[in-house]
């Protein structure tokens, strides 16, 4: 029997896939203080979902397109001199609102919005898994390929420029990676909780990591552990899966702060 025939296995693989790319990318989100940008991208994806339903194309492409559109709008508004957090606040919330309104217009059949807001990992299909696998391969490939350039652009833009690295290109690499993560993660944890999957494992890993690479790997480990534990918990307690995964993330983070307090680690 093929393991992909079992919805639990498919859910587990989807969770692992999303956690493995969300966590290292989440490290950059933390290092560059882009937390709100992650949320804005995720909220924009809801609008993408509505458009996909209306145009009858894959949700993944709609979400990807809107997430990229959001990134372009953010940088355009920032160049006009608006403060970054204002720009993101305006765009994130309006994208979410427009998305929810747009979804309500789509199709005669009532669409279950909560599946996109909070994820619906137990209905992951083999096609979804294949798309997630593509997302994992492209994001991991991109991060490994550009790793050092991304790091120096994160440390200081002018220093990067002087070293021959264009910080704007690296910003776009991260933006694209973020859009891919959001697009594949919608099915798993939903638009509202993607930010948690990006941030919390990275924040948990920080206390134990001495190098950026260690932090990324550890964050991925915490992410995978949270995804699998969350899936297990939701199976036995009959709780919603996406939020259960995020709860485990949060518990791990809380645990890591306790360990730090007693001084037994690092």
């Amino acid at each position: 029997m093929n393991v992909l025939d079992d919805f639990l296995w498919r859910a587990a693989l989807a969770g692992i896939g999303v956690a493995v790319i969300a966590a290292p990318l989440g490290c950059f989100v933390v290092w560059r203080r882009m937390a709100y940008f992650g949320d804005a991208t995720a909220h924009a994806a809801i609008l993408g979902v509505a458009l996909s339903l209306a145009l009858d194309v894959s949700i993944l492409f709609g979400a990807l397109a809107m997430a990229l559109f959001m990134a372009v709008s953010v940088s355009a508004l920032r160049d006009r001199g608006y403060p970054m957090d204002t720009v993101l606040g305006v765009l994130a919330h309006s994208a979410l609102a427009f998305g929810l309104v747009a979804v309500s217009f789509v199709s005669g059949i009532r669409v279950d919005v909560s599946a996109y807001l909070f994820g619906d990992i137990l209905t992951v299909s083999v096609t979804d898994l294949a798309l997630i696998a593509c997302g994992v391969a492209s994001v991991l490939g991109l991060l490994v390929w550009r790793w050092n350039r991304l790091l120096i652009a994160t440390v200081n833009e002018e220093m990067a420029q002087a070293a021959g690295v264009n910080p704007k290109s690296e910003q776009w690499v991260l933006t694209f990676a973020l859009a891919v993560v959001v697009a594949v993660a919608i099915k798993v944890v939903g638009a509202l909780l993607i930010g948690a999957l990006l941030l919390i494992p990275a924040a948990t890993a920080r206390r134990f990591a001495g190098t950026p690479e260690a932090m990324a790997v550890l964050a991925a480990v915490f992410g995978v552990v949270s995804a699998l534990t969350g899936l297990y918990v939701s199976w036995y307690l009959d709780t919603p899966t996406g939020p259960s995964m995020v709860c485990v993330c949060a518990v791990l983070f809380w645990g890591s702060t306790l360990i730090r307090k007693t001084g037994s680690v690092v």
Partner: peptide
Amino acid sequence: DPTLPLTVGRLLSLP
């Protein structure tokens, strides 16, 4: 950002 664990040697080794 203090969340970025970077030793002095590593900072000099970028990119």
